[in-house]
């Protein structure tokens, strides 16, 4: 069986004038259907760039992104992104924000009533149905991110891409949303790639953790499988030996072998 998503020898460099800076070098990774993969690394290592490449928002310099053996070179709703700062359109209500996506993706295949039901089902999934008529400015940061996730899920994507989705949230809200994401993943079995810089979050949510070396020309340093049974509960895991071992492995990678030199100076 071929891989669901394949990153095939990807290089990415940005040219600014005559200067060319290599951001990513020789990225090789395959992801199976239904897998939850985290990408972790120090800031500036190009993990967001990698996500943008998979999303198709930026183009690869060499190599290819293959989704079900088809090359990806432009963005599309089958690779939905949840952005770090939610990116809801502030002039639309929660409902209208999701409706924009649903109308565009299912405008032909679903009737109006079906679309409405589909929007409400996705809002229910993130427990935001009560706020459907609110504007983004009227709800909290955690709620906005929930709506952002609902919008992405409503596109019924083949791959869900999360770009540091909880980075801007406080610790308690973040924990709630992590639980929500775990719950959604177990219910829908959606293939998910998440960018994070939080070690606990990566271990808690992922089937595999992809650790990136520092840039320039960053690449995948190590891939750590997380052999923890699901459903996972954070309180039980906090003393679980496998959890702690995985956590230690990531910490060692990040802070011993690939210490972020600039930050230490």
């Amino acid at each position: 069986m071929t891989a669901y998503l394949k990153l095939d020898h990807i290089d990415k460099s940005f040219a600014r004038g005559s200067q060319v800076s290599d951001v990513l070098k020789d990225i090789r990774l395959t992801i199976d259907k239904g897998e939850f993969v985290s990408i972790i690394g120090h800031s500036g290592c190009g993990k967001s760039t990698l996500l943008n490449l998979i999303a198709g928002l930026t183009k690869v310099s060499a190599g290819a992104v293959l989704l079900e053996d088809k090359e990806v070179d432009s963005p599309g709703p089958e690779r939905a992104v949840v952005f770090q700062n939610h990116s809801l359109l502030p002039w639309l209500t929660v409902y209208e924000n999701i409706n924009l996506a649903v109308t565009k993706v299912f405008g032909r295949s679903k009737s109006r009533a079906e679309r409405h039901e589909w929007i409400m089902r996705n809002l229910d999934l993130v427990q935001m149905a009560h706020a459907k008529d609110k504007r983004p400015a009227e709800i909290s940061g955690g709620m906005k991110q929930r709506v952002g996730i609902a919008r992405a899920l409503a596109m019924e994507p083949k791959i869900l891409l999360l770009d540091e989705p909880f980075g801007a949230l406080d610790a308690l809200t973040r924990a709630h949303l992590q639980d929500a994401v775990m719950d959604i993943h177990s219910r829908l079995g959606s293939t998910t790639i998440m960018i994070t810089h939080d070690v606990d979050e990566a271990v808690l949510l992922s089937d595999r953790i992809v650790m990136m070396t520092n840039g320039p020309a960053a690449t995948i340093g190590e891939v750590l499988p997380v052999p923890l049974a699901r459903p996972r509960r954070r309180i039980e895991l906090s003393s679980d030996r496998t959890f702690l071992r995985c956590r230690e492995a990531v910490l060692k990678f990040l802070y011993e072998r690939h210490r972020f030199v600039e930050a230490a100076e």
Partner: peptide
């Protein structure tokens, strides 16, 4: 904001939809 453009690109809004739904309100 670049994010709104990215949302439009992911949804594959065409030029007209982008103008009416994103550009004018933004």
């Amino acid at each position: 904001p670049e994010d709104y453009r990215n949302v439009a690109r992911i949804l594959r809004l065409n030029q007209f939809e982008f103008f009416v739904k994103i550009m004018v309100p933004a």
